[in-house]
């Protein structure tokens, strides 16, 4: 495992009309690591996330991806560096088949205008390799609109992985999915992340998912990092309990503790 971090965030800050949404956030992410960003609604998770992804410019601080300062780069340019992204509500191309969705990713970074070739032929093998990886090869010809939501989420992950990224940004990957699908998707993500040494930064509200899969957790409150560390330490942090986790009645205590004790 290489020791250079994939992602380094230093003193990142953002304010909207005088309201400090994110202030002085610093963290880094290593290859193969699953890093969760949690916190109450409005704590600045999305803002933080979108600053890393290039959707929102920061006021202050620095984001370095693979050692390169990405200030001023558009989401498209950041993607080209090797950063995949998934969204809270799965964003796929619903008028296409499963395979065409992945082919579209390859069509997107083909050089030139792409007016002459026939896309379906040009990228078929590459697309099928990606679908294989995600376990969807059997559904390649299905219309996307006919897929269950859990499978759409998986397809979205496939699209994010098609570019062979080294960093994956996932915004609430488990949202809107059934409990078992959540576990499956995150287990799959974790496996691929380990295999390919991809760093994963994700936000999540489902604590079962967070405690089961995160290697490290950061807690954001009112724009500031109030805790960071391994799951067990964060879970027992009194400040985190006070502002966010509460009494622990609505997530799986046993599983969270179990995962922690295994480490």
């Amino acid at each position: 495992m290489s020791n250079a971090p994939l992602l380094e965030v230093e003193n990142l800050s953002k304010s909207y009309g005088g309201v400090q949404a994110v202030s002085g956030v610093t963290f880094s992410l290593m290859p193969g690591e699953m890093l969760a960003l949690i916190g109450p609604n409005g704590a600045g998770k999305s803002t933080c996330f979108n600053m890393v992804g290039g959707q929102i410019p920061s006021n202050e601080g620095r984001v370095r991806i693979f050692g390169r300062d990405v200030a001023g780069l558009s989401p498209r340019q950041i993607w080209r560096l090797g950063v995949g992204r998934t969204f809270q509500v799965a964003q796929v191309f619903k008028s296409m088949t499963v395979r065409e969705n992945v082919e579209a990713v390859f069509a997107s970074h083909q050089a030139g205008w792409g007016l002459l070739a026939r896309a379906g032929k040009a990228h078929r093998a590459e697309a099928e390799a990606v679908l294989d990886l995600i376990g969807m090869a059997d559904f390649a010809d299905r219309p996307c609109a006919d897929m269950a939501y859990g499978d759409v989420k998986r397809l979205e992950l496939a699209m994010a992985l098609a570019n062979d990224p080294k960093l994956l940004l996932m915004d609430e990957p488990a949202a809107g999915m059934a409990p078992m699908e959540r576990i499956e998707l995150m287990a799959l993500t974790a496996r691929i992340a380990k295999e390919r040494q991809i760093g994963v930064l994700f936000t999540e509200h489902d604590m079962d998912v967070v405690f089961a899969h995160a290697d490290r957790i950061m807690v954001l409150n009112r724009g500031q990092l109030i805790a960071e560390g391994e799951p067990e330490a964060v879970r027992n942090d009194p400040q985190v309990r006070a502002v966010y986790l509460g009494e622990g009645l609505v997530y799986d205590q046993a599983a969270a503790a179990g995962k922690a004790s295994v480490r």
């Binding site: 558009s74 989401p75 080209r80 964003q91 191309f93 296409m96 579209a104 896309a119 098609a162 570019n163």
Partner: peptide, 18 residues
């Protein structure tokens, strides 16, 4: 493909470099 991708989901399109 790019054009239809943009039509279906411009968010996804932008995040795969279109």
């Amino acid at each position: 493909y790019r054009l239809r991708g943009v039509r279906d989901s411009s968010v996804r399109a932008e995040s795969i470099g279109i």
